[in-house]
Amino acid sequence: MARYLLRVNGERHEVDVEADTPLLWVLRDELGLTGVKYGCGVGLCGACTSHVDGQAARPCVRTAADSARARITTIEGLSRDGDHPVQRAWRELDVAQCGYCQPGQMMAAAALLARDPDPDDEAISEALRDNVCRCGTYPRIRAAVRRAARIMREER
């Protein structure tokens, strides 16, 4: 066991875990951030997608030790009041079915929009193609990313 200082959603947390513990389980088990979803544990489904230093990343395939100096944002920290343009667009277009993959989808979308304010379908596909939705909400996700981009442009 070892102690790591993590910066998550703007707060500092000290955790005491084995060095090879995946960040996913640190966030879920130690910090109670259950919006970070376990889907595959091997970086294939995107359900746990969060931001590490502003980039979309997979907490299931990075360790606590790797993450010690990074700035980590989970769905719980994407916005103060749940009103990030991506979250609003997701609600406006009624994207979710079961909702389980959607935190990861939204975090991937938010990271995309932070670097590309007006992504075309190809850019959306590229950024989100490794996020599996088993319910089949892809057409609405695509529309919601475009909608979120518009909200961001209008409010800039």
Partner: peptide, 8 residues
């Protein structure tokens, strides 16, 4: 449940 889903 859209709000609780969208906020994790």
């Amino acid at each position: 449940d859209a709000r609780t889903i969208s906020t994790g």
